[in-house]
Design a binder for these strands. Structure first.
Lengths: 341, 341
DNA sequence: CTGAAAGCGCTTACAG
DNA sequence: CTGAAAGCGCTTACAG
């Protein structure tokens, strides 16, 4: 038995395909009793029209593509991505869009999906400079496109929704300085990430403000957002700057490695060393001790991306400004404390 | 400018649509020079045929649906799901399938996608008894269907790929008993999960084997897989059975809460209490101490699900047996130790 | 080896 | 208010 079609419904209801189509799409100008008759047959068979036939005539798919163009093992390890994805997915679903999800680092899968007209819009989570060409292709193919996270190299015509990373790290440093810390180390994320570049700039500016030129081991870089990277960077700091009094780290997730290192080296948090993270991922409130961090409101940001993308698809509404900032806030927990006198 | 079509290519190459189609699909019986001529036009425009037009004539979408029918905030918090999804996604991509991803707990989104012919097959990750009707609908609509995780209520005709949970918990208990532990507590996952049911059965059988009837606080149940649940269950155990010497817990993720509780109560792992988890999620090797656990080979299992699903879609190959077991193994790390004498 | 034509299952002017 | 017909962009027998 092959799939039932609109024609079968029409025949059984004693009307034409056109009328069934009208009923299905809630068009006006259908006699109430006709509508009822059609509807009862539709319900009888739980009929749903075939998506690709609709696409064929309407030239839309009701799908959007969400892509996180990074190595898939990183994506699913790091709760920042999961949380963004979760919020975006949830919102897309609520708005009646199906989601084609992919992680190809070169975005080839997304480019193909767009070329094949599989999707009506694209959300790219955390693009980086190396995606410039792919992003340009997408933007030029005039598919609605929105970015979660900012990247200067991408071009000013691309809608980018991003946490103000500079402001966020500024908040972190203000907090530590308020607690009396001056010998503050910084563990940065991967240098190629625009967020890392912004955050470290804020750290540097903050240190200069109190007249410290952070040299030696105070500033550490990471190859990737990983627990190991956080661990290794912390070990290096303790080695090179034994009297460090606070550490600001660019990712809550990496802070898991940081805590491990401090525990191994018998430094208590926050009594010996204050620690402040960045992101506020769902698990960071369960760290020991619960992590003070910069909340970048991941879920709201992910939701907002879909709001804007769907507005663009459905109504053609472009935001006034392509660059949309989400304000970070300080999330005070127990890993920071006034410096020991 | 509207999208270029096969007709545009045909015109420019001086052939018919049929011939372009043949070239695009690598059909035989095309003169090499004709093929070249077509290909050069195709490449000139980076032409890709529209997916829904292909679907229209071929009645296939080249999409599969992957659904994790649980509350979305649980899904992304628990690395077990992420890791399964990661492996499945990766493999689907390699096999040239797009993935429609969803998390609706009632599977309605998936049912609609199938009814609308959006997908060629479905992978359901961790279905439970309450999905019986939805699963029945899918199976009866004769869309290729595969399950990751087993659930008896679903029916014997459904292909279910699952870790042998009973065997896994047996391994855990054998290990603890070998180390001399007898007062072993068990923290189970949610009762409604088939995996929980199997695992606790193995725990009970193991305890009976050494002549212990686990009463009182030795057996704890959790409402959900969460850090809090692991924490609370552990507190209750320490309260009710202060001289417990080992704890077996149904999830590495929950073990994060367990460790927190033990730390608060100043019980050292493994010196005071041995701990063994279940799953072997990517982060459990980074716990303090690294967690001994039952490896259920999450990634291999996720990959296998797609192997089987795609075989079913592409070649109509059904495995000999609907029930496919993946053997768990003991993953020895540092959270278990011989009992103190 | 190649092309003309029919067909996939919808929607949408257009007529009535 | 309703229906007949064309069209969306491909593939696939069928002829030649």
């Amino acid at each position: 038995m092959s799939k039932i079609t609109i024609l079968d419904i029409a025949l059984e209801a004693g009307v034409s395909k056109s009328t069934v189509s009208r009923v299905l799409n809630n068009k006006p100008d259908v006699l109430p009793e006709t509508k009822q008759r059609v509807l009862s047959v539709v319900n009888k068979y739980h009929f749903q029209p075939t998506a690709y036939a609709i696409s064929m005539s309407q030239k839309r798919s009701n799908c959007i593509s969400i892509v996180i163009p990074h190595p898939i093992d990183h994506v699913f390890k790091n709760p920042y991505y999961s949380e963004t994805l979760r919020a975006a997915l949830d919102n897309a679903q609520k708005k009646g869009y199906y989601v084609l999800f992919s992680c190809s680092p070169d975005m080839s899968e997304t480019i193909n999906a767009v070329s094949q007209r599989r999707v009506d819009g694209v959300l790219v989570i955390s693009p980086i400079a190396s995606h410039k060409d792919a992003m340009r292709f997408l933007q030029d193919s005039s598919v609605p496109l929105v970015t979660c996270g900012k990247c200067k190299e991408l071009g000013e015509d691309i809608i980018q929704i991003c946490t103000d990373n500079y402001q966020g790290e500024l908040l972190a440093m203000q907090h530590l300085k308020r607690l009396g810390h001056r010998k503050i180390a910084y563990i940065n994320g991967p240098d190629f990430l625009p967020s890392s570049q912004e955050r470290i700039r804020a750290y540097m500016d903050s240190m200069h403000e109190i007249g410290i030129h952070p040299i030696g081991g105070l500033v550490q870089h990471s190859e990737e957002y990983s627990i190991e990277a956080g661990y290794n960077a912390t070990i290096r700091i303790l080695d090179e700057v034994p009297d460090v009094s606070a550490i600001s780290i660019a990712s809550d997730y990496m802070a898991l490695g940081l805590e491990k290192a401090l525990r191994e080296k018998c430094r208590r948090v926050p009594d010996d060393i204050s620690v402040i993270g960045f992101d506020n991922i769902p698990i960071s409130e369960h760290y020991s001790p619960p992590l003070t961090t910069i909340d970048q409101h991941i879920a709201e940001k992910g939701k907002l991306c879909i709001d804007i993308l769907v507005d663009l698809i459905d109504k053609g509404i472009r935001p006034d400004n392509c660059s949309i900032d989400v304000a970070p806030t300080l999330c005070l927990r127990e890993s920071t404390k006034e410096i020991r006198s």
